[in-house]
Design a protein around this nucleic acid. Structure first.
Lengths: 354, 354
DNA sequence: TACCGAATAGAAAGCGCTTGCTACGGCTGT
DNA sequence: ACAGCCGTAGCAAGCGCTTTCTATTCGGTA
């Protein structure tokens, strides 16, 4: 059988209570005793039984990080940053200060799976949960989320949003870090308008997502402000946040509206697809059509031409979310912080040729 | 306080044992009783206490997926695929058949963190562990890993390797899915040689990693076979699997050896950096220098020119690993399967101009 | 010398669940 | 009509740890 606390206690000739205290370091233990215990732990290769410990202490060292798409670096970067703040020093011993098990859960953007994961984490009595990326705007789902989060918060789980707007009518959320998607999108479109573009296609993300809506709103604000707001629906196409969507939508857009001289994509991945479509149509970037993305993922600077986009400090935001989840950082006033987005002007956008 | 099994039992006017059996569905319960219990569960919004359950049953529903870099789609794709096989139907109820909590743990390529995570998972009595990506070849670390995995296996944890060669001298591993890195690399270089390249630069991954070594060996096999094996060290540069490494190494390579007409990169991300370097040097791809990658990540087809690379069926392998971890698929004979790699000839490679 | 409090260790009562075993009707078979 | 079963449900003993409360020791002080 596996080694238990009692085995260690027997070998160290102390009581189980003492071993527990040595391991948790939350109670004075004479250093000679401590050493004896630690040697026994080593000798027996003892590993704490997590479930038993969590049960008795009514807490666990699990921290969940929910992401919409783990294969998308957008989430990977945030999750990795958060995890590095949570995971502890990682000295290999598996012991040591505040060692938490930071785990990322992939919802695939499905609301059901999001709730399932929250339930699973609730079951494990998770110490904290970080929710990344945009949320679904379906009222029923929002209500279900609010209820679930309230119960989690009740049970002492810390809840942090990262790159997600705060949920209305709930105080369950410890802190929310929201990206300024609207502002970033507005500045991006202003940049395009400033270059002389008048007819701009927009390849939007999936419907009913906060990220999609905010970016689209920022875009339209800029269009309106420039007096260019017309039949926007004609030059807007919705689709998932992937390469194929960008390709198909752009083909469609350019077929539908020949005067389009610029295409704004929901994010960089979509923009890559858009670029491919533009090229396959025999058009040049940026001479014939400008293309812009969003997020400034690492590959964007290597696109040819380099992609004009809006930089989101994903790593910094993820790290901060991790610290908030650990209680290592005090939440921003009101629990909400808006994270600035920075326009990155690069080669994929230029004045229209005509 | 939170609702317990006993509360549910009281409300349904049955014993806790019966509630447990209804919830686990592993013991006959009259359907009228079952319904009463389920209603009580619903009414009270009961959520099982995971730690208590794991303690009593000596098993847990945690499955860990270890990755080297969560921000890299290479791992994201495998992890996502595995998770989708493990996560269950995801009906939102948080209950239902074989619901497991599949979580991904980011080691950042650090051997210490790898061991730490294994300990943490061992602590949680994880049902299974999937290790993805190449392993470190340091003997001390390998021994530590073998020991740790043996203990995990002892405790009933299923262990699956995905994209990682089997560990010598251990039978702890349930199944190992190894990519044919060597064969893929060989075919890639043969392709280059076939095009007429004679002097080929190689931007390798970090030292002491199985993936790095196997790909490099495949490359050199092809060079030797063509009688082109000379002072390979002169045209090989090692570095991490990232864009910056590819950029710097390529600059260095092309400065050092002017006759190099092709650069093979350790993976697609590195290749992207290599492309940028080639261009910044004022050279054209593929006319002046051919560039090739490895993995065929989604963005590779959108590079300009499209990247010649070696396709690894990451999604399929990840999914299979997930099924193996769940015991839904029988391990391959000998516990080892080699996954074929397919050469993808695209625009970034061509015959040298001269 | 006798007493007190600090420092340290142990005893034991759970934490909430699972599960082997027992109990109890109502059927079937003879 | 009675023994033996099958189908259900309950009892109760843990699972391995944490933590409160109690016991012991020891140095210092009056």
């Amino acid at each position: 059988m596996t080694v238990t606390l009692a085995d260690v206690a027997a070998r160290a000739r102390v009581s189980p209570a003492t071993v527990s205290r040595v391991l948790n370091g939350n109670y004075p233990v004479a250093s000679s005793t401590r050493e004896r215990v630690l040697r026994a732990v080593d000798d027996l290769d003892y590993v704490l039984n997590g479930p038993a410990s969590s049960l008795a202490a009514a807490t666990s060292d699990l921290v969940g990080i929910l992401v919409n798409d783990i294969a998308d670096p957008f989430f990977g970067i945030m999750a990795g940053a958060a995890q590095s703040e949570i995971g502890g020093p990682g000295d290999g011993s598996g012991r040591g200060g505040g060692e938490k098990l930071a785990v990322v859960c992939n919802t695939g953007g499905s609301p059901e799976r999001e709730l399932t994961y929250l339930t699973l984490l609730q079951r494990q009595r998770a110490a904290a949960v970080v929710l990344t990326g945009g949320a679904l705007e379906d009222p029923a789902h929002q209500a279900a989320m609010a209820a679930k989060l309230a119960r989690l918060a009740d049970a002492g789980t810390r809840i942090v949003f990262c790159g997600r707007p705060p949920l209305p009518d709930t105080d369950a959320v410890t802190a929310a870090l929201a990206f300024d998607n609207r502002g970033g999108a507005r500045r991006l479109t202003e940049h395009l308008i400033g270059l002389g573009h008048r007819r701009i296609g927009y390849v939007a993300g999936p419907l009913e997502r906060t990220t999609t809506r905010h970016r689209l709103e920022g875009h339209r604000e800029a269009m309106k402000a420039a007096g260019l707001y017309g039949d926007e629906e004609r030059v807007t196409v919705h689709g998932p946040y992937d390469r194929g969507s960008g390709y198909d939508a752009t083909l469609e857009l350019l077929r539908r509206e020949r005067e389009v001289t610029a295409v704004v994509a929901a994010n960089d991945t979509v923009a890559l697809g858009a670029c491919a479509a533009v090229r396959d149509l025999g058009l040049r970037i940026p001479e014939d059509v400008s293309v812009a993305g969003f997020d400034d993922l690492p590959f964007s600077v290597d696109a040819v031409p380099a992609l004009t986009t809006v930089r989101l400090p994903l790593f910094e935001a993820g790290a901060r979310a991790g610290r908030l989840a650990m209680g290592k950082e005090t939440p921003p006033p009101g629990g909400i912080a808006t994270i600035a987005a920075e326009l990155m002007e690069r080669g994929s956008t230029a004045a229209p040729a005509r």
